[in-house]
Every structure is written in structure tokens, then in C-alpha cells.
Design a protein around this nucleic acid. Structure first.
Lengths: 209, 209
DNA sequence: CCAATACGAGACGGTCTCGTATCGAAATAG
DNA sequence: CTATTTCGATACGAGACCGTCTCGTATTGG
């Protein structure tokens, strides 16, 4: 029996059709459901107000069609999260400074599309209520990006572009923290084009005269 | 019937008793309700799942008692927010560096009590759905603290403890961002005692060798 | 053609919350 | 004492959503 879990991820929780006879599940329906959830989320509807019925109405889909594919709301949300994720970023790789600017610029652009931050806020708000969703966010969004940044910093330390007496985790947070503060926690803040550059250069240089 | 408001805040939304005859409202009940909401919030219950009925049950109170005092959930949440807020922080005021450490240390301690970050996450998640709550959070929590930090930085710039070619808003975010990243967005991160010091000193010094 | 499955739509009984109303008891002012 | 208001408790009808199930139709493999 071949389990074609949704996306490229196996064993996602809901029973899955055998290869056998019968009408196959529509990929368009799958997309319509996920897209419907995303639309509701960035209209500002909290995840807890997303009932299965409402999702079905929004997607123009029968309730049973959703229950057929997912175990419940949380499993659906996990798939929504994955569907929304973009592939990893490419880095120029010439200098640590430029790579860092590139990484922060990625965060800035992400903050400009309200979808991702609305989604993020909801994941945060429900991190206790929906632990699997929180875990999925970590493994598919946070951790890869964090690993990438730490690699850049490690190379920088090896090249002499970075103090070697500073914890890499600390350095990462000093760079990422300010950008996330503006993109995620202060929605009214302007996100100027040169913000990534300014953060990186100022953090590298320090605030002392 | 005279419409006054509850707490020390005028015009809060719900009708309020005259001074006249009749049994006065119990202050203990007010506290029990607000305390009940806080308890539910830091048990991880999202604000959208806080029904009036559930709050009443938790507080051991009749529903009518809540409807008598507040217009609805949002007005109640605003009062909960205010009740939870602590008075402003005292600063030693000897050096910019020490004042900054003190401010960040306040943020760290706040992050250690899960209440405030659970509350914060919920306010974020519902910033569109409950705009008055979002506004109240700004005016009672974010803005005062921000003003305090900017004052410290301004004095530092005047004393020569800070580069004068750096935007104060930027400097503020460079310091506050990393701490909020750890306290709010990464709940599993350890919050060591010396974290505030390390952030301040590293940001002041810069990351270059 | 036939068996099997998916589809949209919605009925079904159950639970939960809504906001209002009513009750008897308690507390206060005049 | 009386009038008035608050207290906890609970009843009320309205309505949303739950998860399951059943329609009639559509789409596949054999």
C-alpha cells in the first residue's frame, strides 16, 4: 500500500486512499481547502475561530471531504503551514556581511506579506493548545533558517570577519531579533529597503563611539 | 441613570452604578473575574475560547455579574491587561550602560513569568479582531517602556556613551529585539541571569574582531 | 457495464455559548 | 423598616459547530 500523504510528507495522520478503483481525490480540492484557510487567516480570523464548517463553506467544499483527508483541525493546519513554506534561500557566499544582509532581507520581505506574520502570530498564540503545529513550525520554518544563519556566522568566525569570543547563538539573536521585532511585533513600523543593511552594519560595528 | 466607568479609567464602556442606595459592587468579585481570566490565559487557553460563561465558572460568579460590569469580552480584556501591568521601572541612572541592562533585565524577568508572554501572544494574534485591546496594549505597555529606553539612549548620546550617527530608534531595536526574541518568540530558550548584561555589552561593542 | 470511491449538500442529535430574565438572599442608604 | 441594588444560580430560546451519515452525482479501474 502506497501512502501518498499530502505534500511530500509521509504519515500525516489521516487515512489515505488505496491505489485501487474508485474516483481519485481531487488535487484541486486539496488546494482549495488549504488556500481557504490561508485566506481566512490573513483576513485576521484567529485559528480558534476556524471551524471545519467555516473552512468547508469558504472552500466551497463538503465537510466530509475535509474529514476524509485530515484527522482534525490541527493536522490540517500543519499541512497549511507546509504548503505555505518557500524553498530555502540562496546565499551569495562572498562575505559574511553580505550573506547576513541577504538573510535579514529575506525576513524583511517575509514580513511584508501579511500572510506569514498573521500565520506566525496564530501559531504563537496556540503553541500550547496545538503543540504539533508549534513543532511543525519549528522544524519547517525556524530551524532551517537558524541553521543557515549559524553556518554563515561560523564561516565568518573562521575568516576573521567575526569576533571569536562571542557565542554564535548570541550573535544570531542580535541580528535576527531586531528584524523580527519590526516585522512581527510592530506591524506599523516601516520596513525600509535598507533596513537589513543598516541592522547588520550597526550590529557589526557596535554602538559605542 | 448616570453612566460612570469602572476602575480609574473613565468611559470604559459599561454602565456603572450610581452612588445611591442598594448593595454596592464587590471589589473582591472584580478581582476574582480578572484573576480568573489571567489564570485561564496562562494555562494556554486562547482568548477566543474564553467565553463569558467559562470565565464566570472559573471565577465562581454569575454571568449577569460580568455583563453588569462590562460591555463584552473585549472591554473585559482591556481591564485585565491594565490590572496586570506593573508600575514603571526605576533606573539607577548612573550610566547609560547600566540603565540599559536594567531595562533589559526587566524584560527578561517579565518573560520568565509566563503570564505576560501568553497574554502578549494572544494580543498579537487578535490584533485585528480586537483592535481596542491592541491599542490598549500599546498605550499601557509598549509605549511607556519605549519612551523610557529612548530617554536613556538620548542621555547616553549626550554623554558620549553612544555613537551620535546612529538612529535612536534603531539602537533601541538592536537592544530590545534580541531580548524579546528569546523571551517571547523562543519559549524554550534559557534566560540566564547575565543575559541582559551580555546583550547590552555585545551590542555596544559590536561583532567585528 | 460494474464495483468502488470522491464529490457537494445537508440532515441529524448533541454540546456549547450567547445575552436576557428571574429567583431568593444579602448588603446598603435614608 | 423600606427601597434599591448586587450577589450566585439557573432557566430560556436562538444559533453555531461538532462528527457521522445519507443522499444523488461524478469519476475512476477492471
Amino acid at each position: 500500500m502506497v501512502h501518498i500523504a499530502k505534500g511530500a510528507h509521509p504519515a500525516e495522520g489521516a487515512p489515505v486512499p488505496k491505489g485501487g478503483p474508485g474516483r481519485p481525490r481531487s488535487e484541486a480540492v486539496q488546494q482549495a481547502i488549504i488556500e481557504g484557510v490561508l485566506r481566512l487567516v490573513d483576513e485576521g480570523v484567529p485559528l480558534t475561530e476556524l471551524s471545519i464548517e467555516r473552512i468547508a463553506r469558504t472552500a466551497g467544499v463538503g465537510k466530509a471531504t475535509i474529514y476524509r483527508r485530515w484527522d482534525g483541525r490541527e493536522a490540517l493546519f500543519v499541512d497549511v503551514l507546509r504548503a505555505f513554506e518557500e524553498p530555502d534561500q540562496e546565499l551569495p557566499g562572498v562575505s559574511m556581511r553580505d550573506d547576513l544582509v541577504c538573510l535579514l532581507e529575506g525576513l524583511r520581505r517575509r514580513g511584508l506579506t501579511m500572510r506569514s506574520s498573521a500565520l506566525l502570530h496564530n501559531v504563537f498564540a496556540q503553541m500550547k493548545a496545538l503543540p504539533k503545529l508549534w513543532e511543525a513550525y519549528h522544524t519547517t520554518v525556524i530551524d532551517p533558517r537558524r541553521r543557515l544563519t549559524l553556518d554563515v556566522l561560523r564561516r565568518g568566525a573562521a575568516n576573521g570577519e567575526l569576533r571569536t569570543d562571542v557565542d554564535l547563538e548570541m550573535a544570531n539573536d542580535l541580528l535576527v531579533g531586531p528584524m523580527l521585532l519590526r516585522t512581527v511585533m510592530r506591524p506599523e513600523a516601516p520596513l525600509d529597503d535598507d533596513l537589513a543593511e543598516r541592522i547588520v552594519d550597526t550590529v557589526l560595528e557596535g554602538l559605542r563611539p
